[in-house]
Computed example of a mutant assay.
Amino acid sequence: MPGIDPDSWRIHVKDFMHQDARNRHKLFNQKSKSNVFEFVNGLMQLMGQRGQLLSKYCGIGIYKRPSNESDMKKVRNWVRNRAYNLMLLKVINDSTYYGASPIITFDSDQKDGWAENLFVGDQCTFLYGYISRGIHVPIPNYVKPGSHPCLELADVFAFLVARSIHCKIERKQYEWNLSEMGNVCYTYFHEGGIARYITTTELPEQLLQNC
């Protein structure tokens, strides 16, 4: 938005991806679908060009809807916790390898107890001492949504990966090329609950083997 103070607006995919949302937004209401695609492509290229300065991690958990709807929340939370925990430990392991202490930030000004509880629980395990290499990692902090440029990029990044998975499962044409963003470390659980991770420019095919 040239000519507009960058601190006065935020990048949130939900505000500009669909025409109805754009019509309701005071800054995006004059933007067309082609403008949106051009903008998103530019952000993808920015993330790809900063490959050595910007590490991208994506924790994925895919599950089938349970036959009993009353179990949906329990299943969803279990998968969410597993996906988050695996990615968190991978980020900590990779950061402390280089002597760094990662700062885990949630794009939310409302504290989520589950995330903090998982983190504290990890710190009580023998494995955590090995992964952290004795380096102190502070508990996750919570900030106002879109309050930092990296959080805005993360919002777009999360949407693009989720959209890619959706299109793969629904056998739809995907609108973008994930490789534009460069390497991404995907963490996930393989069949049988075995933790896996892979760094690639494309969505790992093994993620969707049973979908």
Results as ranks from 00 to 15, higher is better:
H166R: 11
K33I: 13
K56R: 14
E205A: 12
I11Q: 00
N93F: 03
A83Q: 09
L153D: 00
H190R: 08
N85P: 00
K33M: 13
C58G: 02
R50K: 15
W9I: 02
L118D: 03
Q19E: 15
G146P: 01
R171G: 05
M1R: 12
S67P: 06
H25N: 15
L178P: 03
P138L: 02
V184P: 03
A83K: 09
S70A: 13
L160E: 07
D109S: 12
M47Y: 05
V75A: 06
M72Q: 14
L88P: 03
P204G: 03
L118V: 09
A83G: 08
E191H: 11
R196T: 06
K26F: 09
A158H: 05
R163E: 13
H25S: 03
W114A: 11
N183M: 14
M17F: 13
I131T: 05
T105R: 14
A100D: 12
Y128C: 03
P140F: 08
T125F: 13
H25Q: 01
L153F: 13
H148Q: 11
K56F: 04
L89E: 10
R133F: 04
G48D: 04
T187M: 05
S95P: 04
D155S: 09
G134D: 01
S32H: 09
P6Y: 10
Q123P: 01
N85Q: 15
S179G: 06
F159R: 07
H18C: 07
S55D: 06
D7K: 14
W9S: 01
V120G: 00
V13S: 03
C185P: 01
F16A: 04
N93R: 10
Y98L: 02
K31G: 09
D7W: 10
L54F: 15
K14G: 08
G61W: 02
N29I: 00
N93P: 00
R82I: 12
L160Y: 01
G59T: 05
P145L: 05
F157G: 01
V75Y: 10
P204K: 06
S70W: 03
C211A: 14
Y197N: 10
H148P: 04
S67M: 10
L151G: 14
G134A: 02
F39S: 01
A158L: 14
M17N: 11
E116V: 14
H18L: 11
Q123Y: 07
A100N: 15
G48Q: 06
M87I: 02
K144G: 00
R163L: 09
Q49R: 14
S67H: 15
K73F: 12
R76T: 09
S108A: 07
G42T: 04
S32E: 06
N177M: 09
P138M: 07
N81D: 11
W114D: 10
Q110F: 13
N210E: 11
Y57R: 06
R24D: 15
D94A: 05
R133N: 03
Y188W: 13
N23D: 14
